[in-house]
Amino acid sequence: MHPQKVVRYIFWDDDEPNQVMMDVAPSMTAPPDSSKYVVLDERTGEILSRPVLNKGFMYIMLQLHTDMFAGIGGKLFLGLMGILFIIAIISGVMLYGPIMKKYDFGMIRSDKSRRLKWLDMHNLLGIVALAWTLVVGVTGVINTLHDVVLGLWQQGQLAEMVAPYKNAKPVTGKLSSLDEALKVSHNAAPEMKASLITFPGTIFSSKHHYAVFMKGQTPVTSRLLKPALVDAKTGVLTDLRTMPWYVNTLFLSQPLHFGDYGGMPLKIIWALFDIATIVILISGLYLWIARIKASKAQLARLEEKQTELA
Rank of each mutant, 00 (worst) to 15 (best):
D111Q: 14
D104H: 15
R114V: 09
A131E: 09
M121G: 13
K112W: 11
K112N: 12
D104G: 12
R109E: 03
F105E: 02
I142F: 10
G106T: 01
A131Q: 07
V136S: 06
H122T: 01
L125H: 04
M121N: 12
G106P: 00
F105G: 02
G140T: 04
Y103W: 08
Y103H: 10
I127T: 04
G106M: 01
L125G: 05
R109H: 09
L130T: 01
V141C: 05
G126H: 11
W132D: 03
L116S: 10
L134R: 00
V135T: 09
G106Y: 00
H122D: 00
F105T: 00
T133Y: 09
D104A: 15
A131M: 14
V138I: 15
W132Q: 05
I142T: 07
L119F: 15
S110D: 06
W118D: 06
R114C: 00
R114I: 09
V141D: 04
L130H: 01
M107V: 15
L116Y: 10
L130C: 05
L124G: 05
D120I: 01
D111S: 14
A129V: 11
A131W: 13
R114Y: 06
N123C: 01
L130R: 01
V141I: 08
W118P: 00
S110T: 12
V135S: 07
L116G: 08
W118I: 06
Y103T: 07
T139R: 12
I142R: 10
V138P: 09
L125E: 02
L130V: 02
L119E: 07
M121S: 13
W132M: 08
D111P: 04
D111M: 11
G137Q: 02
L125R: 02
I127E: 04
L124I: 12
I127P: 07
G140K: 05
G106W: 00
R114A: 08
M107R: 15
L119Y: 14
G106H: 00
N123K: 04
N123I: 00
M107Y: 14
T133F: 11
L124R: 06
I108V: 06
